[in-house]
């Protein structure tokens, strides 16, 4: 049995990746939907209008203005925080938590947001222990925090261009030494790993979609059917992980690992 040279395997991988990489943008361009985005100053004006209403105690008008800013296609932690505060003043606890969590996603270390979330957590009716996460998931999250996917992708692209430059030099000039070969291998492997990591992490993030219970009480069912057995009863403002979705139902997981199906319209996505 003859042994194939390493260049043959590299060529196979190269051709396969090229086909995949070629097909994907075609599909994306074909299915692209134009998103209308209003100018930023419209969003800022709506935010200011909502903040004034909130200061005046006109919470309904404040929410209407903040929603206008939210629907403009722009977002900020301050906008979401103020929306959460307005809903809190109207005793819409679930929506308040939903927008505080949205604010935290943008500004995870902001003390105001963290304080308000702590207050909200004390008011939430459910108490569940936190199930330890598997080490690989922790590691994935740690890597993502240390090396954001956008940064990893751009480094990968720069290295990929460098690799192409080295191969071109080899073909057209006399860059044939051992060090050139090592440089090509290093750039090839590192660019592939970085681009692969960034795209796969973007498609399959290490943490599931999170959502908040919006109704006063929600029943978790064994299967996605109203008449099925009740697994658990959770209450407004609880943050859950969404493991799966169907048209009208969502499979959620609470902190202690209990899972069940709830009606999808009872959840507010973070």
């Amino acid at each position: 049995m003859s042994k194939r040279p390493i260049n043959t395997y590299a060529s196979f991988i190269f051709v396969f990746c090229s086909i995949m990489v070629t097909m994907r943008p075609i599909a994306l361009i074909a299915g692209q939907v134009e998103v209308e985005r209003v100018p930023l100053n419209t969003a800022v004006q709506a935010f200011d209008e909502g903040t004034t209403s909130l200061l005046d105690g006109n919470f309904g008008a404040a929410i209407a203005a903040f929603e206008k800013a939210d629907q403009s296609g722009w977002a900020s932690a301050e906008l979401y925080y103020n929306m959460g505060l307005a809903y809190h003043r109207l005793n819409r606890f679930g929506l308040a938590v939903q927008y505080l969590e949205k604010a935290k996603r943008i500004a995870p270390d902001d003390p105001k947001i963290l304080h308000s979330l702590t207050v909200a957590a004390h008011r939430q009716a459910d108490r569940f222990s936190q199930l330890p996460r598997p080490f690989w998931q922790k590691m994935h999250v740690w890597v993502e925090n240390q090396l954001p996917i956008g940064v990893a992708f751009w480094i990968g692209i720069v290295l990929w261009f460098g690799l192409v430059a080295l191969i071109t030099g080899k073909l057209l000039s006399h860059w044939h030494g051992e060090w050139w070969r090592r440089a090509r291998i290093l750039l090839g492997v590192s660019s592939f790993l970085l681009i692969f990591y960034s795209l796969t992490t973007s498609a399959w993030p290490p943490t599931n979609e999170r959502a908040v219970i919006l109704s006063t009480e929600a029943r978790m069912h064994d299967i996605a059917d109203e008449s099925s057995d009740e697994v658990l009863r959770v209450h407004e403002g609880l943050v859950v992980l969404v493991k799966n979705r169907s048209t009208d139902w969502a499979l959620i997981e609470v902190a202690n690992g209990s899972r069940g199906w709830v009606e999808a319209n009872l959840l507010g996505t973070i």
Partner: peptide
């Protein structure tokens, strides 16, 4: 809850 934010900075694309 903490007081509101009176101004917003660091706007980004919503989604």
């Amino acid at each position: 809850f903490a007081p509101l934010f009176t101004s917003a900075s660091n706007w980004k694309e919503a989604s």
